[in-house]
Design a protein around this nucleic acid. Structure first.
Lengths: 168, 168
DNA sequence: ATAAAATAATTACATTTGTAATTATTCCAT
DNA sequence: ATGGAATAATTACAAATGTAATTATTTTAT
């Protein structure tokens, strides 16, 4: 069956036989990474749905409750979400429409817009966060403290590698 | 600035002060995972673009060249890509339109459709794979063999954990 | 044998995301 | 001080993805 990863590995080996030079272990790693991410995103979207959120709007609200001045520009959100500015504009429209976020012209720079949580938005995200944390704890329940640390280091290393390739 | 992860960690700590009970290390891990994935997806999309592909259509073609009988049903692709059947229908329309994939009614079960690569599709993917492998090698160049193995094991563990939560 | 349930793919429609062009403002080099 | 370049956000539009309903076929329980 498709769901277990051995299926993919057999496929990868079939390609390897048709075309030499495959860095097999790293090809497997990337494939794993993609499929695990999709499952992860799906899981959190499913749990956030009942609160009218998805992983993007949730992260946007989290960025807003966690930022220094309690306000953030669309540009910052775009970086934080690794999403286009366009999409952030639309997302913001949505959150403003729901009454969770306020848009205010920036005082220092009139090109800018300051986004901040409304009282309702703050209340929502403070209610959702503990539920998300419970899910996170279930998700990582089988991992030892050492494994968590190791995973963290590997992801950061991967991040550095990706940004180096990007800049090159 | 937003791009380095310390920025997120300071935000995470600000939340922690507003709301107790956060499993900090694992929250950081999930955030890292999301942001690394987005960067990864972006990188590969950028490199695949010149061949008229993106990560989805590329993986679809890879599944087709790597499958046992050289044919696959839309259903299988949907599982492999962790994408909706609808999206696979559209994706297939696209690949068929480009002349890379053929749609044939299945002999055993007339509800089904067999998808397979055309000669042009096969040629395309055999040309693209080596380039993708070069990128993969750059991406993982800094990782030792041990790190690759460790990462692989952690991702598989994560996959099992996610599928356990899904089934529950 | 046959009717209900299950399965496969697709269609119609909505949502999410992105690229390119536009508008407004600020920065910077003369 | 001022005109060109850079930056911020948005708008118009296109591409990618998803949900629910529909059609065709097969499986299964009587």
């Amino acid at each position: 069956m498709v769901q277990d990863f051995a299926y993919f590995e057999r496929g990868i080996d079939r390609i390897s036989r048709q075309l030499p030079g495959m860095p097999r272990d790293r090809v497997v790693l990337n494939r794993l990474f993609f499929s695990v991410f999709k499952e992860l995103d799906e899981l959190y979207n499913r749990h956030l749905e009942e609160h009218g959120l998805n992983t993007s709007s949730f992260l946007a609200m989290v960025m807003l409750i966690s930022c220094e001045e309690n306000r953030l520009n669309p540009r910052d959100l775009s970086n934080a979400l690794v999403a286009s500015r366009t999409n952030v504009t639309r997302l913001t429209d949505e959150l403003v429409g729901a009454g969770w976020v306020a848009r205010n012209p920036s005082i220092e720079d009139r090109r800018r817009v300051d986004l901040s949580l409304t009282a309702a938005g703050r209340e929502l995200i403070l209610g959702v966060l503990p539920k998300v944390w419970l899910l996170i704890e279930r998700q990582w329940a089988d991992f030892s403290a050492d494994e968590i640390v190791a995973f963290d280091l590997l992801l950061r290393k991967m991040q550095r590698s990706l940004s180096r390739i990007k800049d090159a």
